[in-house]
Every structure is written in structure tokens, then in C-alpha cells.
């Protein structure tokens, strides 16, 4: 009995910091933000209230829903693109190179995170501009000049800049941890290479692949930098709408409504993804 109590205490001792951290820096601010969404703004000052004005205004505003759909679509496209583009790279790193090469590759994939994302996005402005490198190359093959700056393409490129290395890393780790005997067994049973990928490797790495995609979606859905500096805020995404609401008229309660909707969306996507990831076949 005493040993059991001791074990419980030991377990709680190690759980406590995480719980306190999450409570203080996630649950409490989230709760405050939710409460704030019912407040009102009078003369640029927030006034505590319990009014549904902000919710009615935002949810009944077609501009908000247009922005919502646009933000969701862009994040989804970025997620699909990142997952598809990352898979061959991750496959190669997991199965086709030796351990040392893989380590170096993962190290180089981490390096972009050493520099500011904003700086990288500013660098993309130079590349994507009408007089930039891509436009010049397109012009050279007779398809340009074409400016990708201040377009949805620019925004997607920014999202990939942010999320692509992370997706490759997560996919690589996931693929590398597949039991090699499963692949050998598939080959021994006459399964072709492509079929092995779809029938054995992808199902075996499903959880990691979906988690990687989920991270990409979360990062893209909430990003402000790319849609503003590469997309030209045209039209604004939800994160830009948050900034617009706060900087103009101090409409923090309306910004809180947008933020709550964004969080609920991400929770729904995360829940659906995790459910899919752990669903057993048959």
C-alpha cells in the first residue's frame, strides 16, 4: 500500500509541471479570451460585459466567412502540397541512405529554423517579384515575366517555407521507424515496390504522416506573415483580420471571436486527424 502511494506521488510529481504550465499558459488565457469575446469597446476602451454583439457581428458578416473559407483552403492546399512533396524526400532519407547521411540531412533540415521566418519571407519577396529570379526564368522559356508576389501562390510558397522542413523531418522519423521486416515480408510475398509503398509503408507510417500533415495545417492556418508579405493581404486571411480588428478601433473582443473560431477549427481538424490516424483497418 505504502509503495503504491509512493508510486502515485512520484507520478504526480512529474506530471505536475506540465499540468501547471498548461493551466497557466494555455487554459487560463484561452478562457480569458473566450470571456473577452463578450466584452464591448467604448471609446477605444474594453468594457466588461456579457453581450453577443461581437459574435453576431462576426458570424453574420459574409466578409468573415469568405476569409474563413480562403484561409482554410490555402492551409489545406499547403498541407496537401507539403505532404506530397515531402514524401519522396522522406522516403529516400528513411530507406535509401545510410545513417550518417540521414543525420546530416535532418540537421540541414533544421537549419532554416535558425533564421527568422520573417527574414526568409522578405528574401522570397526578392525572388518572387516581377523582376525576380523566377520571373526571369519563366521569361527565358517564354512564359513570363510573371510576378508571384502578392498572390495566393506567394502565400502558399511562404507556408511551405514555414512548414516543409518540419513535414520532411516528421515523415522521415515516421518512415524510419517502420519495422523493416514488414517490408522484407512484402517483397518475399511478391509485392512490387510501388505496391509495397501503398500497401505496407504508408499504412505502417500512417500516424506519423497524418501528424506531419496536421502540423503543416496548423502552422499555415494561423500564419500571418506569408499572407501579408507574400500574398499582399489580398484578400485578408483570418490572422490578418485579427490584426486589422486590434489595430483599428481596439476591437479586441472581435479579434477574440475570430481567434476562438480559429481554435475550434484547429481542434476539430486535429480531432478528425487523430481519429483517422488511429482508426484500425476493417
Amino acid at each position: 500500500m505504502a509503495t503504491s502511494q509512493h508510486r502515485d506521488f512520484y507520478a504526480w510529481f512529474w506530471r505536475l509541471p506540465l499540468l501547471v504550465w498548461q493551466l497557466l499558459f494555455f487554459v487560463v488565457p484561452l478562457g480569458f479570451m473566450f470571456v473577452m469575446s463578450f466584452w464591448l469597446v467604448k471609446n477605444y476602451r474594453m468594457t466588461p460585459a456579457f453581450a453577443f454583439d461581437n459574435w453576431a457581428k462576426m458570424l453574420g458578416w459574409n466578409i468573415f466567412w469568405n476569409s474563413y473559407l480562403y484561409t482554410f483552403s490555402l492551409a489545406l492546399v499547403a498541407t496537401i502540397l507539403a505532404s506530397l512533396l515531402a514524401f519522396p524526400a522522406a522516403y529516400g532519407l528513411a530507406f535509401k541512405v545510410n545513417e550518417t547521411t540521414r543525420r546530416w540531412a535532418l540537421f540541414f533540415l533544421i537549419i532554416p529554423f535558425f533564421t527568422s521566418y520573417l527574414v526568409r519571407v522578405y528574401a522570397w519577396q526578392v525572388v518572387l517579384a516581377g523582376n525576380g529570379v523566377i520571373s526571369a526564368m519563366l521569361a527565358w522559356v517564354g512564359l513570363g515575366p510573371l510576378s508571384l508576389l502578392n498572390t495566393a501562390y506567394g502565400t502558399i510558397i511562404g507556408y511551405l517555407t514555414l512548414a516543409f522542413p518540419l513535414v520532411v523531418i516528421l515523415q522521415t522519423i515516421s518512415l524510419a521507424s517502420i519495422d523493416g521486416r514488414l517490408i522484407e515480408a512484402a517483397h518475399n510475398l511478391g509485392c512490387g515496390r510501388l505496391r509495397t509503398v501503398f500497401a505496407v509503408i504508408i499504412p505502417a507510417a500512417k500516424v506519423g504522416l497524418i501528424v506531419a500533415a496536421l502540423f503543416c495545417f496548423i502552422l499555415a492556418f494561423g500564419d500571418f506573415v506569408s499572407p501579408y508579405y507574400l500574398g499582399g493581404s489580398k484578400p485578408p486571411t483570418l490572422s490578418i483580420m485579427i490584426i486589422d480588428s486590434t489595430k483599428s478601433g481596439q476591437q479586441w473582443p472581435r479579434a477574440a471571436v475570430i481567434a476562438v473560431v480559429m481554435i475550434l477549427t484547429l481542434l476539430a481538424v486535429a480531432f478528425a486527424s487523430v481519429t483517422t490516424a488511429y482508426r484500425r483497418r476493417g
Binding site: 519577396q125 526578392v126 517579384a129 516581377g130 510576378s147 502578392n150 501579408y228 493581404s233 489580398k234 485578408p236
Partner: peptide, 18 residues
């Protein structure tokens, strides 16, 4: 309209001819 910009974006947009 090609975009909506803050100070830096306005500056860059005019400078690089975008």
C-alpha cells in the same frame, strides 16, 4: 489593386516596381 501594405511593404512595393 495589387495589395494592401504596411510601411515596409509600401516601401518595398514601390522600390521593386511591384
Amino acid at each position: 489593386v495589387g495589395g494592401f501594405f504596411d510601411y515596409g511593404g509600401t516601401f518595398n512595393g514601390l522600390k521593386n516596381g511591384e
